[in-house]
Measured scan of single mutants.
Amino acid sequence: RHRTTFSPVQLEQLESAFGRNQYPDIWARESLARDTGLSEARIQVWFQNRRAKQRK
């Protein structure tokens, strides 16, 4: 699998969602996937990585 590159618009949507809830449930992730055009799995990994980045 190649590395996913996120567009500025996608990142804005993801960061906005992260600001509201750092642990989105499956319904929120699937909604974000539809809105961004990404797969739910990529959304899930993005949130995992974003939480790890915040802990540093």
Rank of each mutant, 00 (worst) to 15 (best):
E15M: 03
Q48W: 08
L11N: 06
F47D: 00
V45E: 13
L32R: 00
F6H: 08
S16A: 13
Q10D: 04
A52C: 08
L11E: 11
W27L: 15
W27N: 14
L11C: 07
P24V: 03
A41M: 08
P24G: 11
P8H: 11
L38M: 08
W46E: 02
G19I: 04
F47E: 00
Y23H: 14
R29C: 15
P8G: 13
E15K: 04
L38C: 10
R42W: 11
K53Q: 15
R50Q: 09
V9A: 14
Q10L: 04
W27P: 14
A33D: 00
Q22S: 09
S31P: 00
Q13A: 11
W46S: 02
R50V: 01
W27I: 13
R51W: 02
S39Q: 13
V9L: 12
N21M: 05
Q48Y: 07
Q54F: 05
V45R: 12
Q10T: 06
K56S: 02
R34P: 01
T4G: 11
R42F: 07
F6R: 02
Q22T: 07
A41V: 11
R34K: 11
Q44N: 14
S7L: 05
A33Y: 01
A33F: 00
T36D: 00
I26A: 15
W27E: 15
G37A: 03
H2A: 10
R3I: 12
R34F: 03
I26C: 07
G37R: 07
E30C: 10
R51V: 07
G37F: 04
E30Q: 12
R1N: 14
P8F: 06
R20I: 09
K53E: 15
Q22N: 08
E40Q: 07
L14G: 00
A52I: 07
S31T: 10
G19E: 11
D25M: 03
E40P: 06
R3A: 11
L11M: 08
E15L: 05
S39D: 14
S16Q: 14
H2L: 08
P8M: 05
A52G: 12
I26F: 08
R3C: 14
E30H: 09
R55D: 09
S16W: 12
R1S: 09
E12A: 10
Q10N: 04
S16C: 11
Q48S: 13
R55M: 13
